[in-house]
Structure formats: C-alpha cells, structure tokens
Simulated scan of single mutants.
Amino acid sequence: MDFSDKTLQGVLAWYSLIHIPPDEVPQALKEFARVLVPGGRLLIGFFEGSPGTPFQHAVTTAYYWSVEEMGHLLGNAGFDVLDIETRQDAGKRAHASVTATVR
C-alpha cells in the first residue's frame, strides 16, 4: 500500500480480499497492520466457507474463508479480533465480517 507506516486509523476491506489467492492473504493482512496506528481498526467482509476453497464469482475466481482461519491469519499479522458477525440468507452464500484492532 502506498502509505507510510502507522498513518491510518482504519482500513475497510469489504469483500476486497476474496479475489486474492489464499497464499497471498497473510501478506495483505500484514500490510494492513503496517499502515495502521496502534489500536487502529480493520473491518473485513468475506464469504464464509472452507478456507481457501475457490468458487466462480462475478469477475474472477474468489475464495472462501472460515471465521476461525481468518482469525488465525489476523492474529499472525498482529491483530486482535474484537467482533465477529455471520449471516446465512436462504439460497445464498454464507457471509462473515471480522473487526480487529492492530496491536
């Protein structure tokens, strides 16, 4: 990201990580942690499912993440999870969001 270290109060990644290949997501999360001030917030939205499982999405391949695995990845990147929300609408993919703060 084209931001200096510890300059942002928050990052919104609302379904923007779903198209990143699973092996690149940890680096993206570390980059979010780098640009956030201590205590800065991150909000991530994603489709919940078996971690790293691909599926066809509107533009290109997307990937599912479980709440547990995303929490693990966030912890490894320097975040503490504050809140988790999930929902399952009939006939739709399961959704999840995680709010975290950088240590």
Results as ranks from 00 to 15, higher is better:
residue 1 M to S: 07
residue 3 F to L: 11
residue 4 S to D: 14
residue 6 K to G: 06
residue 6 K to V: 12
residue 8 L to S: 14
residue 8 L to P: 00
residue 9 Q to N: 13
residue 9 Q to K: 08
residue 10 G to W: 01
residue 11 V to Q: 02
residue 11 V to N: 06
residue 14 W to N: 11
residue 15 Y to H: 15
residue 15 Y to S: 07
residue 15 Y to L: 15
residue 17 L to H: 00
residue 21 P to W: 09
residue 22 P to Q: 10
residue 22 P to R: 03
residue 23 D to W: 15
residue 23 D to L: 08
residue 25 V to F: 06
residue 28 A to K: 08
residue 29 L to G: 02
residue 32 F to T: 15
residue 32 F to N: 15
residue 32 F to E: 06
residue 34 R to W: 01
residue 35 V to H: 01
residue 36 L to F: 00
residue 37 V to S: 00
residue 38 P to T: 11
residue 42 L to V: 10
residue 43 L to R: 14
residue 44 I to K: 02
residue 46 F to Y: 12
residue 47 F to K: 02
residue 52 G to C: 06
residue 52 G to Q: 00
residue 52 G to N: 06
residue 56 Q to A: 13
residue 56 Q to N: 12
residue 56 Q to E: 15
residue 57 H to W: 13
residue 60 T to I: 02
residue 60 T to L: 05
residue 60 T to C: 07
residue 62 A to Y: 04
residue 65 W to Q: 15
residue 67 V to T: 15
residue 69 E to Y: 13
residue 70 M to F: 02
residue 72 H to N: 11
residue 77 A to Q: 10
residue 79 F to Y: 03
residue 79 F to V: 03
residue 80 D to A: 07
residue 81 V to A: 09
residue 82 L to T: 07
residue 83 D to E: 15
residue 87 R to T: 12
residue 89 D to H: 14
residue 90 A to F: 02
residue 91 G to K: 07
residue 91 G to W: 00
residue 94 A to D: 12
residue 95 H to R: 06
residue 96 A to S: 04
residue 97 S to T: 15
residue 99 T to S: 10
residue 99 T to Y: 01
residue 99 T to P: 04
residue 100 A to T: 10
residue 101 T to L: 09
